[in-house]
């Protein structure tokens, strides 16, 4: 075998290895999805979506769970969006490159890596106990907001950074103040990227169970919440609860709930991808 033959084989081998690496995650996910679909799809009907939880698996539904998840989604977005974008704009546009700014930056990156259950404990102490919000939607949304703030800050900063210097210069040269430049140029140009980051962060938040269990979200809530101060449950908690029951029928319920939860996260991710593509098409500097 000549040297070039060996090189060609190596090339081929690495290509196959690469395909294997790419597929392995996808295959596992596909198997999981198919398995869940087989178990759960038959369980999903109008009654399942609109029924309250019950001790009897056949009449139990996920109405309170998905209503809770939607509440949490909206409240978390409303809280985390202004805080995250505000912090990112400050860090990127206003703060001087001091040691303090450096320290803040490193710690925000660190926060993104803190386990979610720790955020749950933080939420339990601050929101549930100190602020006396109890195990309410508001306490849950505040806790999840803390959890996803670092992600939003980091992705927003990246989007802001991608707005070219020349556009800012053009604005300043026409007499714009810093805030006018941020509001009229920087934020509109980076909005697609900011939104993408927030949606991805939210899709992570709706999948969280651990921090919400810690702050006291209940598995059994007999009514769908109507105000932010109501008690609540969410889909991941409902799924966790059902999968820990011994009866087969509850496992089927769990599979049905997983399908609904996955639909919500895939929908969110789909919107994020769409926004990113649209942004790439619209703005070419």
């Amino acid at each position: 075998m000549t040297n070039s033959d060996i090189n060609r084989y190596k090339d081929k081998a690495f290509q196959i290895f690469g395909i294997f690496c790419t597929l392995i995650g996808l295959v596992v996910l596909a198997v999981f999805l198919i398995d869940i679909a087989i178990d759960g799809i038959s369980r999903i009907d109008w009654d399942f979506l609109t029924s309250l939880p019950s001790r009897r698996a056949s009449s139990a539904g996920i109405y309170t769970a998905w209503a809770g998840t939607l509440w949490i989604l909206v409240l978390t977005a409303v809280i985390a969006f202004p805080l995250g974008v505000g912090a990112a704009v400050y860090l990127e546009e206003y703060s001087r490159k001091t040691k303090l700014a450096n320290f803040l930056e490193i710690n925000i990156a660190n926060l993104a890596g803190v386990p979610s259950i720790i955020y749950g404990l933080l939420g339990l102490e601050i929101f549930v106990r100190q602020m006396r919000l109890g195990g309410s939607l508001l306490a849950g949304a505040l806790t999840l907001s803390l959890l996803i703030l670092p992600i939003i800050i980091v992705t927003t900063r990246e989007s802001i950074k991608a707005v070219p210097r020349s556009v800012r210069d053009g604005s300043y040269a026409l007499g714009a103040s810093k805030w006018q430049t941020i509001w009229n140029q920087v934020l509109p140009a980076s909005f697609g990227g900011i939104l993408t980051g927030i949606i991805l962060a939210l899709s992570r938040a709706v999948g969280e169970a651990a921090p919400l269990i810690v702050i006291g979200a209940l598995a059994y809530v007999p009514f769908a919440p109507t105000t932010p101060l109501d008690e609540f449950t969410v889909l991941p908690i409902q799924i966790f609860n059902w999968t820990s029951r011994p009866q087969e029928a509850f496992l089927t319920n769990a599979a049905g709930a997983i399908i609904v939860l996955l639909c919500i996260t895939f929908l969110l991710n789909g919107i994020a991808v769409y926004l990113r593509l649209r942004q790439q098409k619209k703005v070419k500097w």
Binding site: P164, D169, L174, A189, K282
Partner: peptide, 29 residues
């Protein structure tokens, strides 16, 4: 900067309409 205008080396129009580009300075005021 309203008194001393500037044109840069690389054209740097804003990602807006032609009209909005021209009136940007007025809108700022």
């Amino acid at each position: 900067r309203k008194e001393v205008g500037m044109v840069f080396q690389k054209p740097n129009p804003f990602p807006k309409s032609i009209f909005e580009n021209v009136v940007y300075g007025l809108r700022l005021q």
